[in-house]
Design a protein around this nucleic acid. Structure first.
Lengths: 186, 186
DNA sequence: TAAAATGTGTACCGATCAGTAAATTGATTA
DNA sequence: TAATCAATTTACTGATCGGTACACATTTTA
């Protein structure tokens, strides 16, 4: 008996494990234990070991956000894209039950390993949101402030709702943020 | 030659190490390496090992916030205490260069180990801020929302400024938050 | 069907992990 | 000065770490 995987099947599993255990906490044996995938297979797909696994996960996350959030913010109807962002992001983060891996990596020494991926994730998010806000009628300076505030608020909401084990904190925070951005584009 | 320590001297060193490496990343050997304190001494002061060390660190953090932030918010002049909170917190977090250990612990599995300490830290902060806002003239519901927004915003600002390696993000976020709370208490 | 390419499982490596034990140091007390 | 005691250092344990090697299974190609 032998189960055959593809890289694409493994990455989401790895993402969830890194989210739950952090980079340092995600040991090779815990990964094999939770995924059922042996070390041989893991090193076959990710010869660079844990670091390459995390790279793949970050790339997948980036890909999802690019398609589901950044691109619409840059090219679609601005107000509509911003509205879609809140619902997509809320769903992606499971109403606060799932954390933002990129944000978590930024907090400790792990940041040094994935510096560029972490920085890019946030700069591109803020930038795309800023552009949408400007298309919706904001002047550049206000758009920049609001974009930072939005992304910042999401990260804070994730921390707080997890700490309090209360997903209504996340939901409410996102609603407040959405209203504030909406108010600034009338 | 023999250097003699006290528990009180060690805790801040441990705090900084946990902040930089996270709970899982802070191995005993890295702790001895960075502090110069041998394993024997560490286990002498903290027989429970790493978990007891982290407990002591969380207790020290809680003590600092209780005295420097929560108590003034509860008992001193409300508007003045809120203003002091922003400056004290900004200084404590070194303008965003230092992270919030409690928030970081909340993000991964470490939360399960220190569940109560993490929850208490945030509930007491929000509660104290809510009370101050009410004394300053907010109705309860608005005070609750603003208090959550404030604490939430600080956490988000820490994540974002670390991710972007830009402490002006932190400073600006706190200024914006301070203004919003100020505006609500006129 | 035969050969080659692709995955998988397992045993193993040296290094490092958390934790223990005991000898030793230096200050305090009698 | 002698005895006591807290604190430190050092050496050690078994378990687990990330990573490697290689035999074996399966699929794809010829």
């Amino acid at each position: 008996m032998k189960t055959v995987y593809e890289r694409a099947d493994i990455v989401p599993l790895l993402a969830q494990i890194f989210r739950e255990l952090g980079y340092e906490g995600a040991t090779l044996s815990r990964i094999t234990e939770r995924t059922g995938i042996g070390k041989g297979s893991l090193y076959h797909f990710f010869p660079g070991g844990k670091e390459e696994m995390a790279d793949a996960v970050l790339a997948a996350i980036d890909g999802w956000f690019e398609e589901a959030v950044y691109r619409p913010l840059r090219h679609d109807d601005a107000r509509q894209a911003i509205a879609a962002m809140w619902t997509n992001v809320s769903e992606y983060f499971r109403s606060g039950r799932r954390i933002c891996l990129v944000g978590a990596f930024a907090l400790d020494d792990t940041r040094e390993r994935f510096s560029r991926a972490i920085r890019d994730y946030f700069t591109r998010w803020i930038d795309a949101l800023r552009l949408a806000l400007m298309r919706a009628g904001c002047v550049e300076e206000e758009a920049q402030t609001l974009a930072e505030e939005g992304v910042c608020g999401i990260q804070g909401a994730l921390v707080l709702s997890r700490a309090l084990r209360d997903e209504t904190v996340f939901t409410r925070s996102l609603e407040t943020l959405a209203m504030r951005l909406e108010a600034a584009t009338r």
